[in-house]
Design a protein around this nucleic acid. Sequence first.
RNA 1: GGAGAGGUAGCGAAGUGGUUAAACGCGGCAGACUGUAAAUCUGUUCUCAACGAGUUCGGUGGUUCGAAUCCACCCCUCUCCA
Length: 405
Amino acid sequence: MKIFEELKARGLIAQVTDEEQIRDLINNGGARFYIGFDPTADSLHVGHFMALCLMKRLQMAGNKPVVLIGGGTGYIGDPSGRTDMRSMMTPEIIQHNSDCFKKQMERFIEFGEDKAIMVNNADWLLKLNYIELLREVGACFSVNNMLRAECYKQRMERGLSFLEFNYMIMQSYDFYYLHKKYGCNMQFGGDDQWSNMLGGTELIRRKLGDDAYAMTITLLLNSEGKKMGKTAKGAVWLDPAKTTPFEFYQYWRNIDDADVMKCIRMLTFIPIEEIDEIDKWAPERINEKKELLAFELTKLVHGDEEAKKAQDAAHALFAGGGDDSNMPTTELSDVPAEGLGIIDLLVTCKLAPSRGEARRLIQQGGITVDEVKIEAIDHVITKDALTAGVKIRKGKKVYHRAVIR
RNA sequence: GGAGAGGUAGCGAAGUGGUUAAACGCGGCAGACUGUAAAUCUGUUCUCAACGAGUUCGGUGGUUCGAAUCCACCCCUCUCCA
């Protein structure tokens, strides 16, 4: 099976500008494609992960990826899929985030001579001169058309600033620039980027008369139609310091029944034939599927060893027995001789965001320490116990260990 | 620049001088049931040294014994006009 057919079978392809051409191009390794990443945070998250996987798949098929860091577009903020304006980031933050992205990406994509390259659109966007830009590319955009784009339509009611309105033009300019400078002939992106991407192909055609292509990746939505990779605490990050491998593993382990196969197909590198076999498993094996998904993804992001640790920890906690030393741990220091109150402990371990919340958790019987339910809000954990390490459980499935360093 | 309508908790949305830490819905968290799932039911949902106290209704001042609620100025959004 060729790469295009594989992507299709995995359900990754959402929209394409020209199916025939794109199939030819990527199946024969002729694509020099780019994907843009806006440095809105200091770590990549699950949404980016899909794009990275796609890059990797295409790279394995002989195509050349261009990673575009939106250091310049970050100054503007993409209004697509948002109902509010992004807060403007300072140049320092943008730079910091870009650096973090690069580090993380190097784990997935091979960079180097004749392989993948990484560019930052700050390098050309920041130098643009307003009047020149208007004359050069402004003439190629129809405001009528732009306003018809779905992403702007949604914003018409709530207000869209001129700053954000220009995001499409900047993104289109990127494609145009990369096409001229690196011969980039294709752009990939999330499905919410579709209109921005079309802007680029249009610009290239008008300015240079060249054909360029665009393809969008299906957004990873759960069965409720919401974007996946978000939890109450925010995004599921790829940075182990922000989302531990164990938490990452658990996120996928706890996925809805209805979403398991879709995620295995879209996110893992398991050969499609095997996936078809897994799909035929008896319904009772649903939990095996979830484990498989969780393990595969943790392995991709954090490596084999961390994935095994996360799985062991999960087995230890939920199935009993096994080694539980890999669960998320908080190392305490400066513990007074009389020990630590349970409320303080919960807050320092970040199991509760505030003391009031911690109090509530205990009152509702949601906290156990070393498998003993805590009834009193003034319960004290002794220093000796903490030195040995205690296992705190919040609710049914949040486990945490606290130990004195 | 002008006229009108708005800005209330994570979100949506009531409230238009004291009984309001603010109805209701969603979301979140916890309990029950289960399969570490969903659905359902129950509780809970600003903070803290917690039967008490502190700080909240775009911002800053003012009126008042008392303000989310009245007044002034400012900021932001929407609709219409220029």
